[in-house]
Amino acid sequence: MKKTAVIFPGQGAQHIGMGQELAEKYPEAKKVFEMADHALGEHFSEMIFNGEEAILKRTENTQPALLTASLAAWKVLESQGVKASYTAGHSLGEYSALTASGTLSFTETVQVVRKRGQFMEEAVPEGKGTMAAILGLDRDKLEKVTKQASEEAGVVEPANFNCPGQIVISGSVEGVNRAVELAKEAGARRAMLLQVSGPFHSSLMQPAAEKMKPELAHMDVNGQSMQVIANVTGRPVTKENVTKALTEQISSPVLWEDTIRYLLDQGVDTFIEAGPGKVLSGLVKKVSRQAVTLPVYDKETLEKAVEHLKEEEK
Rank of each mutant, 00 (worst) to 15 (best):
P164R: 06
P164E: 11
G165T: 06
S170C: 11
G171I: 04
R178G: 13
R178A: 14
V180S: 09
V180L: 10
E181G: 08
E181N: 11
A183E: 02
K184Y: 07
E185W: 09
A186Q: 12
R190S: 08
R190W: 05
L193W: 03
L193C: 11
Q195M: 14
S197D: 11
F200N: 05
L204E: 03
L204K: 02
P207D: 03
A208V: 05
A208N: 02
A209Y: 04
K211R: 14
M212Q: 07
P214E: 01
E215R: 05
E215M: 08
N222T: 11
G223P: 09
Q224F: 13
S225D: 15
S225G: 15
Q227E: 14
I229L: 07
I229S: 00
N231F: 05
N231T: 04
V232Q: 02
V232A: 02
T233K: 02
V237Y: 00
K239N: 07
T243W: 03
A245T: 13
A245D: 04
T247E: 14
Q249I: 11
P253K: 07
V254Y: 07
T259N: 04
I260H: 00
R261M: 12
R261L: 13
Y262K: 09
Q266A: 03
T270E: 08
F271M: 07
F271I: 07
I272V: 15
A274F: 10
P276F: 02
K278N: 11
V279I: 06
L280P: 07
V284H: 10
K285P: 01
K285M: 00
K286W: 11
K286M: 11
V287E: 04
R289K: 15
Q290T: 15
V292Y: 08
T293C: 15
T293A: 10
T293V: 15
V296N: 06
V296S: 08
V296E: 03
D298S: 12
K304H: 14
